[in-house]
Each structure stands twice: as structure tokens, then as C-alpha cells.
Amino acid sequence: MRNISDIIEGYLKTIIEEEQNGVIEIKRNEVADKFQCVPSQINYVIKTRFTVERGYAVESKRGGGGYIRIFRIQTNSHKELIEHIVGSIQEGASLTMAEDVVYRLIEEDVVSERESRLILAAVDRTTINQPLPERDVTRGRILQAMLLTLLYEQMN
């Protein structure tokens, strides 16, 4: 059974896909009213499901006429996407960041389900048995190496 966060995420993604430019502006309270939830639930969904790692950018304006703008970050090719991700994990990657990156790679048809499971197994906290922050640095390096391998495989 899907929880309310999954339903809200699906609703927002559907609206984004329907827009020609891939950009939506929402009012947090209006979406909360639609789903009969508290506005902080909308904040949670946006903060956790519409991240840069998942391919989204979020802007907000506070105040009476405030809004939240969500837009899909478009890349021109798999190469550009991989290069963008590699650049974003230079300092390391938390497990959540790595999972979000893999989720995006699946969505964009860069990796298969099997490849995604292999990547996630390699970067799991039980595999990288180190304390923080070394674990996140190591995870970032492993993820970068795997992505660069994918990039070079696609170029050949």
C-alpha cells in the first residue's frame, strides 16, 4: 500500500511531466488541502523526493503570495548526466545521495535494474565498513568509479 508521501510525489511528478517546460509552481497549503494533510508533509515530500540527485531543483518564495517552484533538470545526453553526477559527489556521498543517484539513473535509462542493484550493493554501509565521514568519501569514490566506467563503456 502506498503512503501519503508516495501519492503526493506521484501527483507532483505527473503535473511536472504534463507541463511543456517541466516547471510547476505550487502553493504548499493548497496541495496540503488537496491531500488532507499538514503542510509540513508537503515540505517533507519536496525535500526528500525532489532532490538534485534525483534530477530536480526547487525554489521557493515565502510570504502571502509565496510559492514553491519545482523543475526537472534536463540533460542533453547520458554522458552529460553522468558528468553532472560525478561532479556533484566529489566530496563524498551519503547512502541516501547514492540511492537517489541510482534512482535517477534508472529513470533516465542509463542503468538496468540489475546494474542498479550491483551499484547499491557496492556502496551499502555494510559493504563499506568504515566510520563516518570516511565511509561517505569511500562511497563517493566507488560511485564515481562505477559511473566513469559506464561513461567510457558508452563512448566505445
Rank of each mutant, 00 (worst) to 15 (best):
M1A: 10
S5E: 13
S5A: 14
D6V: 02
I7M: 08
I7N: 03
I7Y: 09
I8P: 00
E9H: 05
G10C: 04
G10I: 01
K13I: 02
K13F: 08
T14L: 02
T14S: 12
I15V: 14
I16M: 13
I16Y: 15
E18N: 09
E18V: 03
Q20V: 15
N21E: 09
V23L: 08
V23M: 09
E25F: 10
R28C: 05
E30L: 15
E30F: 05
V31R: 00
V31I: 15
A32H: 02
D33F: 07
D33K: 13
K34N: 09
F35K: 02
C37S: 11
C37K: 08
C37N: 07
V38P: 00
Y44N: 13
Y44Q: 08
K47A: 08
T48D: 09
R49I: 11
F50M: 04
E53K: 05
E53H: 09
R54N: 15
A57G: 11
A57W: 08
V58Y: 10
E59Y: 13
S60F: 04
G64P: 14
G64E: 12
G65R: 11
G65S: 06
G66C: 06
G66Q: 10
G66V: 14
R69M: 15
R72L: 11
Q74C: 07
T75A: 12
N76D: 15
H78Q: 12
E80Y: 11
E83C: 07
H84A: 12
I85F: 11
V86N: 06
G87K: 06
G87Y: 09
S88P: 07
S88L: 12
Q90D: 13
Q90Y: 10
E91C: 01
E91I: 03
G92C: 12
L95S: 04
A98C: 08
E99F: 08
L105I: 12
E108W: 01
D109H: 12
S112I: 01
R114M: 03
R114Q: 06
E115W: 06
S116E: 05
I119H: 04
I119Q: 10
L120G: 10
L120S: 02
A121F: 04
A121K: 04
V123W: 06
V123G: 00
D124K: 12
I128T: 07
I128R: 00
N129L: 05
N129A: 04
L132M: 11
E134H: 05
D136T: 12
D136R: 05
D136L: 03
I142R: 07
I142L: 08
I142K: 02
M146C: 03
L147D: 06
L148V: 08
L150M: 09
L151Y: 13
N156I: 07
